[in-house]
Computed example of a mutant assay.
Amino acid sequence: MFGIETYRSRLGHFLGQIGPHMETRAIALQSMPRFPDGSLLRGESSNTVFFVEQGKKRPFHSMEAFHFYKYDWNRVTNV
């Protein structure tokens, strides 16, 4: 019940069980819309504006910060 072969066997069984779930997640991530760096995004039901940088959404913590960096409110996309 111990040793590398037992570990590999159990790991193979575990990965076999979660494999279909991981494939579904990968497909879901691929189908999500991608926004180019520099995009300004805001959810329809949210007041928080996000700046897309290196594929990650970075929130502005205040409207003062948004204006400090001289972003244009007309460039914000509602998603």
Rank of each mutant, 00 (worst) to 15 (best):
K56E: 08
M32H: 09
I4M: 14
S31K: 14
A28M: 09
R8G: 01
K70Q: 14
H21D: 12
S62R: 03
N74G: 07
I4V: 15
Y69L: 11
G3C: 01
R8Y: 05
L15C: 05
N74L: 12
R34G: 06
V52C: 05
R8P: 00
I4P: 01
I4T: 11
E5W: 04
A26Q: 10
F2Y: 13
M32T: 09
R34M: 12
I4H: 10
F50A: 00
T77G: 03
S46V: 02
A28C: 06
V76Q: 09
T77C: 12
S31W: 05
Y69S: 04
V52G: 00
G43H: 08
L11R: 10
L41Y: 02
R10L: 13
F68A: 11
Y7I: 10
G16H: 03
F68E: 11
P20V: 04
G19C: 08
I27H: 07
R34P: 06
N74C: 08
H61Q: 10
M1F: 09
S62D: 01
F50D: 00
Y71I: 03
R58W: 05
N78P: 12
T6F: 15
W73F: 13
R10Q: 12
P59I: 06
T6H: 15
L40V: 01
H13A: 15
F66H: 05
S62I: 01
M22S: 11
R25K: 13
L41P: 02
Y69T: 06
V76L: 11
V76W: 07
S31P: 02
G3I: 01
R10C: 07
L40Q: 01
N78T: 15
H61E: 06
T6Y: 15
K56W: 03
S31E: 15
L15S: 08
H67R: 04
